[in-house]
Design a protein around this nucleic acid. Structure first.
Lengths: 137, 137
DNA sequence: CTTGTAGCTCTAGTTGCTAGAGGTGTTACG
DNA sequence: CGTAACACCTCTAGCAACTAGAGCTACAAG
């Protein structure tokens, strides 16, 4: 059995975050010691690693909850799990696209300032005047 | 003079968000009508467009506040404005890099599921088992 | 003059944590 | 066996950047 601190070190999830996941129902309420401290099993460590990995991939707590429900019913079709992963992939791709557009605009803004006073500053002017932008956002 | 609703339509910033920006000190407290309703000038519309543009680019409220302070002092050197834009550019690039790594992992996860029950599902297994990952995150 | 839309303030909720206060449990050393 | 150091407990509040709702008032058109 692991203490919460050991579990934290094993998984890289901070202690208050573990308690928060318990509160949110992602982790089952842990067994307790005589003195009311949480004690964790290997399975619970695996569950937490799963959660951590999914969070790193940007899945919401809600999505993770669904995946956990799914994995508790191994006989069900896995189309739902597939869908969650695909939706996440779409979301990530959309974010990348959006950020790339921002990148090119910021690049333009940040490298074009040749005045040395704010009144001539391209950064300020570009932010004030949307028309200097090359595309919509 | 514009009402808050007109200002909202002109700039694409929602009404409660405009009031929130006022509260946060990004917008000066607006002039009021007899009946205590906010009335805005052209300059205030420009200011709000500036804020909106900067927010779209991912700048924090804090960063925007600094830029507004800068633009109120046109005689100052614009190195600070440059720095804010460059920092934002760095942050955006870092995010893109991270998201690309996630994209390739999700791609792998979302396209590899050939079982049709959860017990064989690659999505679930990949999330449970970090070793299936190609790189660290 | 009335009706409908738009505005007002204030409070609380969202997501995914993180920090702090104030108290208790556990363990290692002497 | 006592005590010091550290880990753990619960609870509340805070973060960013809004968003939603309640309960009220203002304004413009017909």
């Amino acid at each position: 059995m692991l203490t919460i601190g050991e579990l934290s070190r094993q998984t890289g999830v901070k202690i208050p975050t573990i308690r928060y996941y318990e509160q949110m129902g992602l982790m089952d309420a842990a067994e307790r010691s005589e003195g009311n401290q949480r004690r964790y099993t290997r399975e619970e460590q695996d569950r937490l690693s799963f959660i951590r990995h999914a969070r790193d991939l940007g899945l919401t707590i809600e999505a993770i909850r669904k995946l956990i429900d799914l994995s508790a019913h191994p006989e069900r079709p896995c189309a739902d799990a597939d869908r969650i992963a695909s939706e996440q992939l779409q979301a990530v791709r959309a974010k990348i696209e959006k950020l790339k557009r921002l990148e090119s605009e910021l690049e333009r803004i940040a490298t074009h300032c040749h005045g040395d006073q704010v009144k001539d500053c391209y950064v300020i002017r570009a932010l004030a005047n949307h028309e200097l932008c090359e595309h919509e956002h």
